[in-house]
Nucleic acid binder design. Sequence first.
DNA 1: CTCTTGACGCACA
DNA 2: GTGTGCGCCAAGA
Length: 113
Amino acid sequence: MQNGFFQTVYSVVKRIPQGKVATYGQIARLCGNPRAARQVGWALHVNPEPYVIPCHRVVNRNGRVSSAFAFGGANVQKELLTKEGVDFTDEQTVDIDKYLWNAQSERDLTETT
DNA sequence: CTCTTGACGCACA
DNA sequence: GTGTGCGCCAAGA
């Protein structure tokens, strides 16, 4: 893989299980740069492979969705998450406190052996 | 090369 | 809970 920080982000994002959401900070931390939450957003901004990368499962620390969603808009993101079983506490906010993806699950997925 | 902006996070008032 | 400031890293002008 491209020895790039973004590739790591994409890998993590694509491993987010359906019906759950992850935060930029969480992903940033998993990829090794807990301070690079902005780059996580940037990585999804360039979104090289829409729909391949479930960026709609990626929300900010408050569970607030993005207003510049690559798939079409925050509205689409809300629809997708709702279909996956994620409940919204507000028009643009998901119940991240309950649907937040557990990094430990990530280990189970990345656990090749 | 330098300055500004940005799908963020956290601290402080 | 909301508004403002600082930090981190990368890209665009």
